[in-house]
């Protein structure tokens, strides 16, 4: 950690007492920074295992208290973006592309999803703000409202960032849905369904979709995790008090317990997300039994 330019000590001390070397050493000892890096890391890990994420160097507030409410914002944002990228964009887009395979709607869907994949998430956010501020005189709110307090107000501030984020996540799901549907439509049980006189629509929605959706749901679940990454920058654009902004703020203040805690918390969340996706998979596919 000696690599880091402008350590927290010099920042804190600059503000407090000038550059008195005695004060500096005292402060270092207080924060445990006089020990070698592996000792610091070790004691941090030991505390984390006991459920103690430490205190912010800056504000002295326990990191867990800082993180809790902000995690909710980030998770809500990512969840909304996941719904938009899968249910609103990805799956319908993939269904259209598959239904018109190798004809013009297929190409249009492909080009549009490549476009969505190529747009920087934060820029999409900026453009949405620009468009909405010019046309509807809308601007990102200054204070955040919890959905439990005022659902409508919460939605009004969350929907645009969620759309910007959801667009970025849609392209892989479009592709996955399309290929999955096409693969399933070639299966023998689809031919069986046709031989019973079922209509094409019924075959597509009752027989094919139910099978094709299984891998799509899995990857949409995993996409959730990657959208959390995109949330970091979208929160900054839309001034939402989520983990991303906390992380950026902590970085600029060199408040490392907070940085570590942010990455660790999201990492742990992703592990649980993976487990949840596995459970969902087993629920959707009767051939898979948990514990096998």
């Amino acid at each position: 950690m000696s690599l880091i330019p402008g350590s927290v000590i010099s920042q804190l001390v600059d503000q407090a007492a000038g550059s008195d070397p005695e004060k500096l050493a005292e402060m270092e000892a207080f924060l445990g920074l006089d020990r070698p890096w592996y000792a610091q890391l070790g004691s941090w890990l030991a505390n984390v295992v006991q459920g103690d994420l430490g205190n912010s160097w800056r504000s002295r507030i326990p990191v867990a208290d800082l993180l809790g409410p902000r995690l909710m914002v980030t998770l809500q944002l990512s969840a909304m973006a996941t719904v938009i990228s899968s249910l609103v964009l990805g799956i319908p887009g993939g269904l259209i592309a598959a239904a018109y395979k190798s004809r013009w709607p297929d190409s249009v869907v492909r080009v549009v999803s490549l476009l969505a994949l190529s747009v920087p998430v934060f820029w999409m956010g900026s453009m949405l703000i620009l468009v909405f501020s010019v046309w509807f005189n809308w601007s990102p709110p200054l204070t955040w409202v919890s959905p439990f307090e005022d659902f409508g107000a919460n939605m009004r501030m969350m929907i645009l960032p969620a759309i910007a984020l959801g667009l970025a996540g849609a392209a892989p799901l479009v592709r996955m849905t399309r290929n999955s549907i096409l693969e399933v439509m070639g299966q023998n049980y689809i031919r069986t369904a046709r031989s019973t006189g079922a209509t094409e629509g019924r075959i597509r929605f009752r027989h094919a979709l139910r099978n094709a959706i299984i891998p799509v749901v899995t990857s949409a679940g995993l996409q959730f995790g990657f959208l959390i990454g995109g949330a970091v920058v979208i929160e900054e654009v839309f001034s939402l008090p989520g983990v991303g902004r906390l992380l950026l703020q902590a970085i600029s203040q060199r408040d490392f317990p907070v940085v570590q805690a942010c990455v660790l918390t999201i990492g742990i969340f992703l592990i649980f997300l993976n487990i949840a996706v596995d459970i969902l998979y087993a629920y959707l596919d009767p051939r898979i039994k948990l514990g096998d």
């Binding site: 299966q187 023998n188 049980y189 069986t192 369904a193 027989h207 099978n211 959707l284």
Partner: peptide
């Protein structure tokens, strides 16, 4: 119709 391969001719889900 009754198809050849009963393993794949019924909808698995």
């Amino acid at each position: 119709m009754i198809f050849q391969d009963p393993m794949t001719s019924l909808n698995p889900v």
